[in-house]
Amino acid sequence: MEKKMLSERHAMIIFEGMIKLKQGIVVFLNGTSSSGKTSISTELLKQNKISFKHLSIDDFLLRLLRDYFDFINTECSSTESADREEVQVSNDIIINPLVSLFFSTIKFMSAKGINIVVDTVNDNDERLNACLELLIDHPVLFVGVTCSKEELTRREDLRGDRQSGLAISQYDQVYCFDEYDIELNTEALRPDECANLILDFIRSNREYSAFKKINKKSVGVS
């Protein structure tokens, strides 16, 4: 009986190891709005060496909540509270849990063996903590996507679809990390060059260590 239990336990350990080996790679692009994350994601999706899916927080929320946001804006609008207070209530009650769902979706896809390029903005400590808690046991390649503030402003002006000054307002919070597996300066490198450096890192079989190091730090909740 004891031998049978040991055998079953051994089989379970092997099975869990097989599941872990099949986890999909999470290429986590950390950068402000207009830093070049989407352009790099596009290049990673175009290449045929490693298959990726792209998960963007903007697309995720738009697909999930298009009609819901219309309902909230129509039925729950208030003229009594200040706009700033309304934004905070919206973030605390609605947006933050949905961002946690976004990270849970990434975890689910990785557990299914799907390689994912994640395009989001880490400008909120509470959301970052949720991300760290959910993905710490998954193979996360943490990539810093950077460029100068001057270049961010120039790109915003060219795009015309972003609020002026948005990237600068995110800058200090988004780039508060000093640990990355790879850092990519999109002023110096084209998107395809950035994608190739990411692929080279993955094929080198080097350890993805930066995300785990971040988890060990005390990240405050704002």
Rank of each mutant, 00 (worst) to 15 (best):
D125C: 05
D123L: 03
V89I: 15
F108M: 09
I94H: 09
F52I: 02
M109K: 03
R66C: 08
S51E: 12
N129I: 15
V87K: 14
S110G: 05
K107P: 01
D70L: 12
F71E: 08
N122Y: 01
N122H: 04
V121I: 06
F102T: 02
T120P: 00
F69Y: 14
N124A: 06
D67M: 04
D92M: 10
N129F: 09
V118Q: 00
S110L: 03
F108K: 11
T105N: 09
D123G: 06
K107T: 02
N122L: 05
T105S: 15
R63F: 07
T105K: 06
S100N: 10
D70I: 11
E80N: 06
L98F: 05
N129A: 10
A82F: 14
D59S: 14
I106G: 01
S110D: 03
S81N: 08
C76Y: 14
D92W: 13
E80D: 07
C76L: 15
I114C: 02
K112E: 07
S81R: 08
S90C: 08
R63P: 01
E86V: 15
I106M: 01
K53P: 05
E86A: 14
L101C: 10
L98D: 04
F71I: 12
S78W: 04
S78F: 06
D119S: 03
D119E: 09
E80I: 11
T120I: 04
N48Q: 12
F103D: 00
S51N: 10
N91V: 13
F103M: 00
L98C: 09
F71Y: 14
A111S: 14
I50N: 05
D59I: 03
V118K: 00
